[in-house]
């Protein structure tokens, strides 16, 4: 609250923290099942805190339903969190007025998962890419076209593509259009929600390289939401592993891949399909999808964890420092770290 008051002053001085998410909680109320019972609730985010310095990238990984996309939408101020705050350049996005937020949106843009669904089929590429500009209604048409053509070139498309429609492009090209749309306001942060998971593997590499090049060129920061550890490792300086709305482990990619300290991270690493000729096929253990409803005590992962004991089921583990910039929320983190690394087999 006090931060919002002196936000303009704070903006003037060099601010190393680009994004500061603190204790984000997002609770959804489900439709009532029984008239006489309170409506069930789901905790999509349960106290998520992350910080990101300018020019760095954060990867957020987790399985479906872990709250990754909710995190992305809340950071993008598309949803108002139940509690907690999202600060971009020192300004709390959820406390800005509608008008201020609209102007602030220049600084953070988003790339979506589905390159087919994220472009309006009835608009030309020029209109789609210029959308963040026209939202303010201040750029004249000629300048707008110039800027769109320039940004299309940056993502590897041609200026001649301006007047085409999305259906005339392939999936990878469409994702480039979506990236161009995010780039046109010269944002400082791009939140990418599974930006390559809908693409062919070869096209994935192209798009990831493009994202990397753009980061080098413009000093962008990404928040990359993905279920694919390899994608996140390629692009990110830091990875947060999220499970049922909580960050269970956070650290640099090499820490997570070589010395993961949370059994869930380990399970994710082990789940990466590997081609090992001659090896017998092994069925993976069925995963119990735990509920995110409240009322449970102890570690959220305890139900699935092979190392869980009585302490895990009663006491919620807090994030502990396992090394420089490496945090894990597990009572048995040391045991897990001592296990042989999964990553060796991976490469």
């Amino acid at each position: 609250m006090s931060q919002t008051a002196n936000a303009p002053a704070a903006r003037a001085e060099p601010e190393p923290l680009l994004l500061e998410v603190s204790d984000l909680v997002q609770r959804y109320t489900l439709p009532r099942e029984n008239l006489f019972q309170p409506a069930p609730q789901v905790l999509a985010l349960n106290g998520v805190s992350v910080q990101l310095t300018a020019g760095k990238s954060l990867g957020v990984v987790g399985e479906s339903g872990s709250g990754k996309s909710t995190f992305a939408r809340t950071v993008m101020a598309l949803e108002t969190p139940t509690s907690g705050s999202v600060k971009l350049l020192g300004r709390d996005l959820h406390r800005l007025s509608i008008d201020e937020l609209r102007r602030a949106r220049c600084d953070f843009q988003m790339v979506f998962q589905d390159p087919y669904g994220s472009l309006d089929p009835r608009q030309t590429v020029a209109r789609i890419v210029a959308e963040p500009l026209t939202a303010f209604g201040r750029v004249d048409r000629a300048e707008q076209r110039d800027r769109v053509a320039a940004v299309l070139k940056q993502v590897g498309l041609r200026g001649a593509d301006l007047d085409k429609y999305p259906h005339e492009f392939s999936g990878g090209q469409r994702q480039r259009i979506a990236i161009a749309r995010a780039l046109i306001t010269q944002p400082k942060l791009i939140v990418a929600d599974e930006p390559v998971s809908a693409l062919d593997v070869s096209v994935q590499a192209q798009v990831l390289n493009l994202l990397q090049d753009l980061q080098d060129e413009f000093g962008l920061s990404y928040v990359l939401i993905s279920h694919d550890l390899a994608v996140v490792e390629y692009l990110c300086d830091e990875i947060a592993v999220i499970y049922l709305g909580r960050i269970v482990e956070q650290g640099r990619p090499e820490d997570l891949f070589n010395r993961c300290a949370h059994p869930y991270t380990r399970a994710l690493l082990e789940a990466v399909p590997q081609a090992r000729p001659g090896r017998e096929r092994q069925r993976r253990g069925t995963q119990v999808i735990a509920s995110q409803s409240r009322g449970s005590t102890g570690c959220v992962y305890a139900g699935r964890c092979p190392y869980a004991d009585a302490q895990c089921r009663s006491v919620v583990p807090v994030a502990r420092k396992m090394g420089p910039d490496h945090y894990a929320a597990c009572h048995h983190a040391e045991t897990i770290m001592a296990l042989p690394a999964v990553a060796d087999e991976l490469r």
């Binding site: 993008m76 598309l78 509608i98 609209r102 988003m110 589905d114 608009q123 959308e131 939202a135």
Partner: peptide, 26 residues
């Protein structure tokens, strides 16, 4: 429910403009 509407919201467009520019034409 489509993602391009979400993209328009990210761009900072209000409900009225989204209705006129995206929903109605579609």
């Amino acid at each position: 429910a489509r993602e391009f509407v979400l993209a328009a919201r990210v761009a900072g467009k209000g409900k009225f403009r989204i209705t006129i520019e995206h929903v109605l034409p579609n």
